[in-house]
Write a protein that binds this DNA or RNA. Structure first.
Lengths: 207, 207, 207, 207
DNA sequence: GATGAATGAGGATTCATTCAT
DNA sequence: AATGAATGAATCCTCATTCAT
C-alpha cells in the first residue's frame, strides 16, 4: 500500500507548495505566515508539518522546483546547433512568461534570488540552477566560435552570462510591471543573438 | 546634546544607513533585527528611531539611495552619441562592480528588487529607478535607428530593456558568486553592443 | 489540543477576564502588563492573544461585562411600582457592594469610567450602560409625577441622573476606602428616596 | 532677586500644569507623553524636569490643585446655616460646571479618581480632598438633626456621602456627555436637599 | 538655566512550531 | 494521520528621563 501513500503524499506536497506559491507571490516570503499557507492550502498546521520541516523547507522546495523546470528546458535544447539552441532557449524561456501562472511563479523566483543571499541552502540551489545553463551555453558558444560564427576573442562564459542576464533581467522587469510584453522583447533578443552570431568570419549563414 | 546642525543629522542618518547596509548585505533584510542595526551603528534604539520611522523606512531610504546613484550615471551619459552612451553606461555601471563596497551595496540592491514585490513604496522607487534609464536608452536607440545604425524594425524600448537586463542580470550573477569577473563580461557586453550598433548602416541585410 | 468546544472557549475567556480583573483591580489598567495577565491566568502570551486582540480588547470586554450586569439589574426592576423600583435598585446595586469580589470589580469599573474618556469604544459602552438605567428611571419618575408622588415641576431626567449619581458616587467613595459601609449609606439613600417620593400628594407646597 | 525667580518659577509651573491639563483632558494620563506636554507647554524637556520630578509629579500636582479648589469652596460655606451650606455648595460646585474650562479640568479630575487606585500619593490627596467636605457636611447635618430639620435616625456621615455622591456622580455623567445640562440637575438636587431638610419634626421652616 | 538628542529598559505583539487529543 | 490550541522566544517600538553642550 505504499503506492497509494506515495501518491497521496505527493498530492499533499503539491497542495502545500501551490498554496505557498500563491501566498509568496502575493505577499513575499516574510510577510507570509505559516498560518497563511495553512489556510490557503485548506489543511491544518500539523498536516503541513507532516510534509515539510518548516517554512524554510517549503521555500527550499519551491526554489528547487523552480530550477528543476529550467534544467528541463536546458535538456531539451541539448545537441541542437548553436543558433538553434539560443533561439530555442529564448523562445521557451520567455514564451512561458506570457502565462499568468508562470508570471506568478517568477515573482516567487525573484524572491528566491534574494533569499539565496541569506540562506546557504537556497544559494546552493540557485548556483546549481545557473551552472548547468552556463555550461551548456558556454559549450554552444565555443562550438560557434570554433565554426567562426562568433568572434573568437570573446570569453565564451562571459557571453553565456550575458545571455542568461537577458533572461533574468527580463524576469525582473516583468515582475515589477506585468504589462511588459514578451513578444517585442523576444524579437529584440533574437536580433541581439543574430547580431552576435551571424557576423564575423562567417558571412551569410544566418537564420 | 541639543541644537544639532543639519550636518550632524545627515551624518547620523549616514551612520544608520551604512550600518543597515552592512547588516542587510550580510544577513538580508529579514534576518536583520533593529538591534543588529543599532549595534552596528553604535547607537541606541531610540536614536535610530529618531532618524527613521522603522525598519521599512530604512529599507526605503536605502532603496532610494540606490536609485539615486543610478540616476546620476544616467545623467552623466545624457547628450552623448548613441554608441558612446551605451559604452559609457556599461563601463560606469559594471566598472563600479569591481569594488568590494559596491558589491556589498548591490547585494542589498538585489534584496530591494525582491522587496519591491511586497512593499508598494519600494516598488514605486524601483519603477522610478528603471523608467529614467529606459527613457534615455530608448531615445538613444531611436536616434541610432534614425541614423541607420540599428535595424529599424526593432522595438526601441525592447532593445533598451535588453540593455538594462544585461546590467541587472550581471548584478544577480555576481551577487551569487562574487568571484565572477567584471572585465570579460564588460568585453562581451561591448561586443554585443557593437554587434547591435556597428553593422546596420552597411546594407539592408538584417531583419 | 484541537477541536475545542465553545464551552471551553468561554471558560478560557473567563479565565483571562478574571485574571485581568484581578490585575486591574490591583494595579490599574496601565500598570498592568500583558505579562501580568498572562501569568495570573496561568496561560501563555499566545493563548491570551488567541482570545483577545490585545489589552484594549480585554479592557473593552470587561467594560461590556460590567454594564451587562447592570442592565440585568435594571431588567429585573422593570414593571414594578415607582417606589419599589427605586428601593429595589438601591438594594440590589448597593447590596452587592458588600461583597469583596464585587468591590474588586467596581475598582475596575472606576477605571473603566476614566478609560471611557480616552477610548471611544469604551465610551460607547459606558454611555450605553447609563442610557438604559436613565430611561427606566425617567419613566418611573414620570409615572410617579403623574400620580402626584413627586413634585411635577422637576425634570424627570435630572432626578434620574441624581439617583444614578447616588449609586456611582458611592462606588467612587468605596473604591477610595473599602471600609466605607454600605448599610448606613443604603439607609440614607432610602431616606432620600422616601423624602423625594412620599410627600407630594400632600399639597402644592413645594417650589 | 529671589522674588523674580519665585514668580518666574510659579509662572513656569502654571504653564506646565496648564499644558498637562490640556493634554490629559484630551488623551488621558497614559496616552499623554511627556513630549506631548513639553510641546503643548512650548518648553523643552529639560525645562519641564526643572520644575517637576516627572510625569507622576505633574499628575500629583494637578490632583492637589483640584482638591485645593474644592477645599476653597468648602471654606466659603463654613459657618452658614445648614440649608444655606448645602444650597451654596450645590450652586458653587455645580455652577462652575457650566464653564468649558472647568469641564476640561473635571475630565482630568475623573482620571485622578481612577489614578488614585494605583498611586498611593494620589490616593492620599483624593482622600484628603474628600475628608474635609465630609467633615463639614457631617457637622452641618448633625446640626440640622439637632434642630430637628433632618430625621435624627440617619447616619449623618452617610447622608454627607450621599450629598458628595450627588456632586461626583454628576461630574461623571457630564464627563461622558458634555451636553448634559447643569441647571435642571441643580434644580433636582435642590429639591432633594429640600426634601431631606424641610420635613420631619419641624414643619414650615424651609427655604 | 535652558536645550533636545540620546538612552535603554520595558512592554505589546507575532508566529514558527509542537503535541495532546 | 490529522487537528488546531497552546507555547514562548523573538522582535519592534515607545517614552520617561538624563546630561553634554
Amino acid at each position: 500500500m505504499p503506492k497509494v501513500s506515495d501518491t497521496h503524499r505527493a498530492a499533499r506536497r503539491r497542495q502545500v507548495l501551490d498554496a505557498a506559491t500563491e501566498c509568496f507571490a502575493r505577499q513575499g516570503f516574510h510577510r507570509t505566515t505559516m498560518q497563511d499557507i495553512v489556510r490557503e492550502a485548506g489543511l491544518s498546521a500539523g498536516a503541513v508539518y507532516g510534509y515539510f520541516a518548516g517554512k524554510d523547507d517549503i521555500i527550499e522546495a519551491i526554489s528547487a522546483e523552480r530550477h528543476e523546470r529550467e534544467r528541463e528546458l536546458i535538456r531539451q535544447a541539448r545537441g541542437l546547433p548553436a543558433a538553434e539552441v539560443l533561439r530555442r532557449l529564448a523562445r521557451d524561456f520567455l514564451g512561458s512568461l506570457t502565462e499568468r501562472d508562470e508570471q506568478k511563479r517568477r515573482r516567487v523566483g525573484v524572491q528566491v534570488w534574494a533569499e539565496a543571499l541569506r540562506e546557504p541552502r537556497v544559494m546552493r540551489l540557485v548556483r546549481r540552477g545557473i551552472d548547468e545553463p552556463l555550461r551548456l551555453l558556454t559549450q554552444v558558444i565555443e562550438q560557434a566560435q570554433a565554426r567562426g560564427e562568433i568572434a573568437p576573442g570573446l570569453d565564451a562564459q562571459a557571453v553565456s552570462r550575458a545571455i542568461v542576464a537577458l533572461f533574468h533581467g527580463f524576469v525582473l522587469q516583468q515582475s515589477w510591471d506585468p504589462r511588459v510584453k514578451v513578444a517585442p522583447y523576444l524579437a529584440a533578443i533574437e536580433a541581439v543573438i543574430d547580431a552576435l552570431l551571424a557576423h564575423r568570419g562567417a558571412a551569410g549563414k544566418k537564420a
